[in-house]
């Protein structure tokens, strides 16, 4: 099962400002949990004027208690305080001529629990709308997929195949391979997976408006005092970090 979130909205700022704010959006008052941001790859194509960037964000995260309850600690990689680091790999392409930006972010370390892929498109509105110089349209989609038990299912599938092969050969009467019972058996029921996905979807529905507010703060700082104002704001946000 996969859960899907999508939304569209606009910022009352032109495309260049929004694309710059995207690169400058962490930290902001709505995302003080972002501990670091590093650029890992960047390439500029003079021909197409497209700029491709890969960044790695580290967030201090806490698994929602409702999810943590469903999982053994070893499956989550949390420390004793229940804090975990989330690594987010973000790829973006900016086309300054056509005035659009596409981004895709992947959550890396919840991979054994949950895979989250978030996509954004920022675009200058059509000329006819008359707002092209002071508006940017955004569409966002988030795909959530629980990966609990994926490996286990694969293994079982293989066992299943072997068992079938054996019975064809005519060994007959053989017991099915013994699968250790315990909390593993609940994985396969799919109930935990569904619960993790539902809880995560609720979280996404709450966190998306916050991400939007964070961008608005950065855009406002840009308008007030340019990049300098954004950097000063960041410094304050960092000092306030938990």
């Amino acid at each position: 099962m996969v859960k899907f979130y999508s939304n569209t909205y606009s910022y009352d700022y032109n495309f260049p400002a929004v694309s710059l704010a995207y690169f400058l959006r962490y930290p902001n008052p709505y995302s003080r949990h972002v501990a670091s941001t590093d650029t890992i790859e960047r390439s500029f194509d003079p021909e197409t004027q497209r700029l491709t960037t890969v960044r790695l964000h580290v967030k201090q995260s806490r698994l929602p208690p409702a999810v943590a309850k469903l999982l053994p600690k070893s499956a989550v990689g949390q420390d004793q305080d229940g804090r975990a680091q989330s690594f987010i790999l973000e790829k973006s392409v900016v086309d300054v001529r056509e005035e659009w930006m596409e981004t895709e972010s992947k959550n890396l370390d919840w991979n054994n629990v949950l895979s989250v892929i978030e996509r954004h498109t920022f675009r200058r509105p059509e000329e006819e709308s008359g707002t092209a110089d002071h508006r940017t349209d955004v569409s966002v989609s988030v795909t959530l997929k629980s990966r609990i038990g994926e490996q286990l299912r694969k293994r079982r599938q293989r066992w299943g195949e072997q068992a079938t092969a054996t019975s064809v050969i005519g060994a007959g009467g053989e017991e099915e391979p013994v699968v250790k019972q315990g909390w593993f058996s609940s994985w396969s029921s799919g109930a935990v997976r569904a619960a993790v996905e539902s809880i995560s979807l609720q979280r996404t529905e709450r966190s998306q408006p916050k991400a939007q507010l964070g961008m608005s703060v950065v855009l406002d700082r840009l308008r007030q005092g340019g990049i300098q104002a954004v950097l000063e704001g960041m410094k304050d946000d960092r000092e306030l970090a938990p």
């Binding site: 962490y26 930290p27 972002v34 501990a35 670091s36 941001t37 590093d38 790695l56 580290v58 950097l231 960041m234 960092r238």
Partner: peptide, 8 residues
């Protein structure tokens, strides 16, 4: 500016 994950 945002910090690097490697302080060095």
């Amino acid at each position: 500016m945002s910090a690097s994950l490697a302080p060095e």
